[in-house]
């Protein structure tokens, strides 16, 4: 039986791991290579790295971070943040990423998903949706959660699957960093409409909330950041809890 994946996420800015609340007030949380190694030892099923600096310099640093990590950590690695072209994607894949996460660029140019999927395979194209509730349902936001694209988040996920995305990384801007739990309704709304895996992100504060994301939200994987970086939960504690509730984990 396929297990639920626990994916630590490192937001990287100029080579440092940072973490904010609701996408703001970024603080330094550590060195990416050291943290990646720690999570690998704890039993992480995958690792994700998002470049939040989004400057040219920050992305070059990111490529180096991915390269270093892929030389000593042998689990799937997802990298993203500010990727705009097939060349950007190729650079990260060659450096050692197994998948790339795209967020803003495909909103402006949906064909990028299709082109990237054909060039590198659907399995390595993750569409990242930063979603927030608006007066007219959930919308996909771009540019680090600052700009409402006007796209309806659930429909955008459906369209991305049709274009060739291999996974949906679903971040709730409303819940990000709050530790109050995932946006379960959002997860469910997307999960019921796509056949590709959905990764839940934003809001985890305890193992019960993660369990709810899987059981109620129907998530295939969960992405975790601050709660791991500040040692509020360990991956093994989460996995033990899920196992005790009958969820298959590695």
């Amino acid at each position: 039986m396929l297990t639920v994946r626990i994916i630590p996420c490192l937001d990287v800015d100029e080579g440092y791991v940072v973490k904010g609340v609701k996408f703001k007030n970024l603080t330094v949380a550590g060195d990416p290579v050291e943290l990646a190694w720690k999570y690998f030892q704890q039993g992480a099923d995958e690792l994700a790295f998002l470049d939040v600096g989004a400057s040219v310099k920050s992305r070059k640093t990111m490529v180096e971070v991915v390269r270093k990590i892929s030389e000593k950590i042998f689990i799937p690695l997802t990298a993203g943040g500010g990727l705009r072209s097939l060349e950007d994607i190729r650079e990260l894949l060659l450096a050692g990423a197994d998948k790339v996460a795209l967020c803003t660029a495909p909103v402006e140019n949906p064909q990028l998903i299709q082109k990237a999927s054909l060039a590198f395979g659907a399995q390595c194209i993750v569409l990242s949706i930063d979603a927030a509730r608006t007066n007219s349902g959930w919308h996909a936001f771009t540019k680090g959660g600052t700009k409402d694209s006007g796209l309806e988040a659930v429909e955008w996920a459906v369209q991305a699957e049709a274009l060739g995305a291999g996974e949906i990384l679903l971040n709730s801007i409303d819940c990000d960093g709050t530790r109050q739990g995932y946006d379960l309704e959002l997860l469910k709304a997307v999960g019921q409409r796509v056949k590709i895996p959905v990764i839940a992100s934003g809001g985890a504060g305890n193992p019960e909330q993660i369990y709810q994301a899987i059981v109620t939200g129907q998530a295939d994987a969960v992405l975790l950041a601050s709660t791991l970086h500040y040692d509020e939960m360990t991956i093994s504690e989460i996995k033990q809890y899920l196992k005790s509730k009958g969820v298959a984990v590695r």
Binding site: T3, R5, D45, Q123, G166, P197
Partner: peptide
Amino acid sequence: ASKVPHMGWNK
């Protein structure tokens, strides 16, 4: 299966 590709850790 309900989700294809088969992606993740399996026994």
